[in-house]
Amino acid sequence: MYNFEFVKPSTVAEAVSALGEEDAQALGGGQTLLPTMKQRLASPSKLVSLSGIADMKGVSADGGVLTIGGGTTHGTVAAEAGAYPALADLASHIGDPAVRNRGTIGGSLANNDPSACYPSAALASGATIVTNTREIAADDYFQGMFTTALNEGEIITAVKFPIPQAANYQKFLQPASRFALVGVFVAKYADGVRVAVTGASEEGVFRWSEAEEALNKEFRPDALMDLKVAPANMIGDLHGTKEYRAHLVGVMTKRAVTAAG
């Protein structure tokens, strides 16, 4: 780790102004950023901790929408997002207790790791990413591995999830990191089914539109029988070939549909 300055503001406005400095960076739970800094792969001059901002914390459900503060930890979501059980369940399987007690939804979505869990939930739910300046639809937010619509210094203050009629997340573990080797989030709304896949693609989280169409006709695993994603754009590494990941997308989607019921 290189030396850095540290501030812990208590309002979003203060945080935004602190982030205006060159090479300042937001710190959520630090579960991604701190290991990266320890490896000396990141060297922010100043860390602006978001963990003292009360407005960015908490889970609330209102009018069919679950709102989660950007600074809410995975542990809190697991415990308090009962209105959206599939989401609470997803949060409860991220990392280990230490990670869940520190890591935040805002940090996860800002980072947009291609193997992270939350991006699939946000995309499959058609969530809205709320920042200090605007609201961004999930469909516009994810722009490829580690890339998002966020501007420099922009802070995710909340995420709004429309609560589906039925949903489920199936995570197939990468054996070492236990991130998603392939994770599929299926959410069924009155106006249609959304299927989002994480872990699999070289382009990051994506919607599997063929599966959505098939499931819109018939929300049963059998509806997916003849569907396959093409291996070409899948990630191939020592934990799984492109073909294997493409295959798993199908298996996990079917399982998610079965479990969603």
């Binding site: 080797l181 799984g240 070939t241 295959h247």
Partner: peptide
Amino acid sequence: LSPSRVWA
């Protein structure tokens, strides 16, 4: 015998 190898 990773899942990927067994499946392959």
